[in-house]
């Protein structure tokens, strides 16, 4: 089953600063600042200008991140947070 697809602005990570393993993102579309811990920035990078469902997201970032074994549940939780913050949406 494919599930919902998500999309982030192509330039969502264009204004960002790394500090102590965290990514501070200035989101240009909203003017809001978000402090993100992994894997949220990697999820954003995977969806920037390129929509995908959970499976596609996992395959795009899977090589870099050890999300297993709770991967699907953890990913769904991160996506819900990113969607509430307006950083990703369903196209």
């Amino acid at each position: 089953m494919a599930g919902p697809r998500y999309l982030a602005d192509a330039d969502v990570l264009a204004v960002a600063a790394e500090m102590e393993g965290l990514t501070i993102v200035f989101h240009q579309a909203s003017g809001q600042t978000h402090i993100l811990a992994p894997p949220a920035p990697q999820i954003l990078a995977a969806l920037a200008g390129d929509a995908g469902d959970e499976e596609q997201i996992l395959s795009r970032i899977g090589a870099d991140f050890d999300l297993a074994p709770a991967a699907p549940a953890a990913l769904a939780a991160r996506l819900a947070e990113l969607e509430a913050a307006g950083l990703v949406h369903r196209p």
Binding site: A29, S30, G31, Q32, G86, H89
Partner: peptide, 13 residues
Amino acid sequence: RVEALWEAEMARR
């Protein structure tokens, strides 16, 4: 302006 357009976008979503 940015904040107002963003609020409209969130309502649209």
